[in-house]
Nucleic acid binder design. Structure first.
Length: 750
RNA sequence: UGGGGUAUCGCCAAGCGGUAAGGCACUAGUUUUUGGUACUGGUAUUCGGGGGUUCGAAUCCCUCUACCCCAUCCA
């Protein structure tokens, strides 16, 4: 693990350090209503990964609160995904449905507390009553029902005495809440549906917002990690747990940005559409970003995990480049799998001066992969090479066989072009070459220099295989729908040829086909009679080999001009205050503006002015530092007073302390409410301005950092800050920065 | 439009007042019987824009802009 921790791990560490929890408990809580994709993998890696890192545990919980969409087949797929990635969940798989009784009990408690009620308006009316983002909603008349009536109704709901939709149980929170989620959210709805686990035991089912937080609590989860779109739900999460006054410790929710990858889609809805319309061949289609898809394509769990670890965790919506995923699988397979020769687009080659046959022993692994293993390559007069490895009229920089350029057959001989045989249309159907008997690999005395060694297979012994070449499913980086499908996302090559050992010896299921890419024996369709290989990923290609790839036309987007919005005009009083500040007190307009527009700030400012007549200095500290504190709280809640601030400014004015120390003192005032003078005294923060005392420290710093002195003298003037910082650090911030600055500048000039 | 989030290289992403980490991609070179791998180097005078505070700002303050989420009896 590197130096830094992602923000989730930082939170976990702090909580552990603070003793908030004895153990970290996380959970991976999918709803079993769809197949897991690589976005789930990210969540799995985060939840199980954090549990592992901090020696806690992670539960696998099926969030099965909606009987109409969920199914046990998805449960199996989800379990498989976690296992395939190599994680172990704590105990057996959990199900929210196992907690239905407990959750129901909590609902009754809430009703008894008067914090939940049975509402009986229909859906449409409820929507209307909810209000809009800018207008408050109104509570329905049913909110006034008595506790007894609510209890009774809720019991009847549970017993299935009402039809779907007739009643719901809602939390009584606030219909005017700015957070729409808090406008009396639904807790339970009636669903006369068969639940795949609970059967027909229940006629009511809890909603996500009610069930999730309680399930977390029941399981003793410490950190409930979910994606960004649940940020608004956090308030309900907290409301439920707080209202129920549950015994601590209780879980807290933290959100991260979900994974997006370009040229693919990740939403259940879009994935389902692809499968249902038959655009892809089932949930395990290798072009899909589903776990099943990657698995079938040949990706390894390690590569997926490395990918998830590599992309980091943050709160900014982002779209990761598939190239990063491709890197991970290449990187993993490079050191693992055997190299073999396959020819995808065969071109017949006759070696006119070769007779008979021979067997060549060749290593499965290149020199830089420390693995053992060899196979026999049959060789004879007739072989196949890839069509792309011969060019009659090569472009500049072409390394392979041409009429004038010889090439090596990997592990075998160097061949030289003689003649191209063409059909009636002028297509090359065969080429004739001659070989150099003294150029055999490993015992080459020919002295011929070639630029490249190409793969080949021997005609009589090569096996015919089917190769499925996959490309990105969509042609757009951020596909919208089916219209963005890449029509060439799958190419089936039925006439590919492969060296015999791959089929007969089966050294592995994943291979590198030399110079082509990594391939995987399809776990479903492969048979020895009809071998099928999926292309996992191509080898990286240097730009020289890439054939005139359409150099993504550099779209010269006009540089976006940032439009400045209009600032709300000041009210008359604000304007008067602003004028007074700028004219009488000589504040700069920015500071005056901030002060004038904020009543809290200006009143605080005026009060401080009464103690000390230093309008500019006080204005600066009030607008910058006091403002930060006043963002959250009222003046009356501050631990320090305007008088304290004035006193602090006075010390700065008298150069008793530097502004840097002043910040430090201010921090302390915020925390403890201590008087600034006593803080300065207690901590001995008086500033050092005497050059005599500072100079030796500077010398020391300079002596310790010869490299940076060099760089500075070479023109890296930014380093001045570094030196000043070092000196300040050495004096615990007490040195007068202005003096230090001047002194350092002088010292470095020499 | 009210609320909640987010903006650092082409793509991810560290950084929390004192020298703009790292990975992917790109690029140049060395090694190489894979145009692969490995290795070495090059890639942000600047952190969404503008102001302010400070000796010093990606980091603190003000302000503007852009994007995402919220008005399912889905999760």
């Amino acid at each position: 693990m590197s130096e830094y921790k992602d923000f989730l791990r930082t939170i976990v560490e702090e909580d552990l350090k603070a003793g908030k929890y004895k153990e970290v408990v996380t959970r991976f809580p999918p709803e079993p209503n769809g197949f897991p994709h690589i976005g789930h993998a990210k969540s799995i890696c985060i939840n199980f990964g954090i549990a592992k890192d901090y020696k806690g545990h992670c539960n696998l919980r099926m969030d099965d609160t909606n009987p109409t969409t969920e199914d046990t087949r998805y449960v199996e797929a989800l379990k498989d995904a976690v296992q395939w990635l190599g994680f172990e969940w704590d105990n057996s798989v959990r199900f929210t449905s196992d907690y239905f009784s407990q959750i129901h009990g909590y609902a009754i408690e809430l009703i008894k507390m008067g914090k939940a009620y049975v509402d009986s308006v229909d859906e449409e009316e409820m929507r209307e009553l909810r209000g809009t983002v800018t207008e408050a909603g109104k509570r329905s008349k049913y909110a006034e029902r008595s506790v007894e009536e609510n209890l009774d109704l809720f019991e009847c709901m549970k017993n299935g005495e009402f039809k779907d939709g007739e009643h719901v149980l809602r939390a009584k929170i606030d219909m005017g809440a700015a957070n729409m989620k808090l406008r009396d959210p639904l807790l339970y709805r009636i669903r006369h549906a068969h639940h795949f686990r609970a059967g027909d035991a229940w006629a009511i089912y809890p909603m996500y917002d009610f069930a999730h937080c309680l399930s977390d609590y029941i399981e003793g989860v410490s950190h409930s990690i979910c994606t960004l779109e649940f940020e608004n739900n956090r308030d309900i999460y907290d409301w439920v747990l707080d209202s129920l006054q549950l015994q601590p410790p209780r879980p807290y929710q933290h959100e991260f940005a979900r994974l997006n990858i370009n040229y693919t889609v990740m939403s259940k809805r879009k994935l389902l559409e692809l499968v249902e319309t038959g655009v892809v061949d089932g949930w395990d289609d290798p072009r899909l970003p589903t776990i099943e898809g990657y698995k079938r394509r040949g990706y390894t769990p390690e590569s997926i995990i490395n990918f998830c670890d590599g992309i980091g965790i943050a709160k900014a919506n982002s779209m990761v480049d598939v190239a990063q995923l491709e890197f991970c699988i290449r990187d993993d397979l490079n050191t693992k799998v055997p190299r073999v020769m396959a020819v995808l687009d065969p071109l017949k080659v006759t070696i006119t001066n070769y007779d008979g046959a021979e067997e060549i022993e060749a290593s499965y692994y290149p020199h830089d992969v420390p693995k053992e293993g060899t196979r026999i390559l049959p060789f004879s007069r007739e072989i196949y090479i890839d069509r792309a490895d011969f060019s009659e009229s090569p472009e500049k920089g072409y390394f392979r066989l041409t009429p004038t350029q010889s090439v090596r057959l990997k592990y075998a001989y160097i061949i030289t072009f003689e003649e191209a045989i063409k059909d009636a249309k002028g297509n090359i159907v065969e080429i004739k070459v001659s070989y150099h008997p003294d150029s055999k690999s490993g015992e080459d005395t020919s002295g011929i220099k070639v630029k490249s060694a190409i793969q080949w297979v021997e005609t009589n012994t090569a096996k015919n295989v089917e190769v499925r070449v996959y490309d990105r499913l969509f042609k757009n980086e951020a596909p919208e729908g089916l219209e963005d499908i890449n029509p060439d996302s799958l190419k089936v090559i039925k006439t590919a040829l492969i060296e015999p050992s791959v089929i007969t010896d089966k050294p592995d299921v994943r291979f590198q086909f030399e110079r082509e890419g990594y391939f995987y024996a399809d776990p479903v369709d492969y048979t020895d009679e009809k071998p099928v290989f999926n292309k996992i990923v191509a080898l990286k290609e240097s730009s020289a080999k890439k054939k005139k790839t359409p150099q993504q036309a550099p779209k010269d987007e006009p540089k976006k001009v940032q439009i400045d919005g209009e600032v709300v005009p000041m009210s008359e009083e604000e304007q008067a205050l602003f004028d007074k500040y700028t004219n009488e007190l000589k504040l700069n307009s920015e500071v005056a503006n901030t002060l004038a527009r904020d009543a809290k700030l200006s009143s605080f400012y005026e009060e401080a002015l009464q103690t000390l007549d230093s309008p500019v200095a006080i204005a600066n500290i009030v607008t910058n530092d006091v403002a930060r504190e006043l963002k959250q709280v009222e003046i009356s809640e501050l631990k320090f007073t305007a008088k304290d601030v004035a006193e602090l400014v006075k010390m700065v004015n008298e150069e008793l302390i530097s502004s840097k120390i002043a910040k430090q003192v201010f921090e302390e005032m915020v925390k403890s409410g201590e008087n600034p003078t006593s803080i300065v005294e207690a901590k001995g923060l008086v500033q050092i301005s005497d050059p005599e005392m500072i100079a030796p420290i500077i010398e020391e710093v300079i002596a310790k950092n010869p490299d940076n002195v060099e760089k500075f003298k070479a023109g890296n003037t930014k380093l001045l800050g570094f030196f000043v910082g070092q000196v300040l650090k050495a004096t615990q911030g007490k040195a007068n920065p202005k003096v230090v600055n001047a002194l350092v500048t002088q010292a470095l000039k020499v």
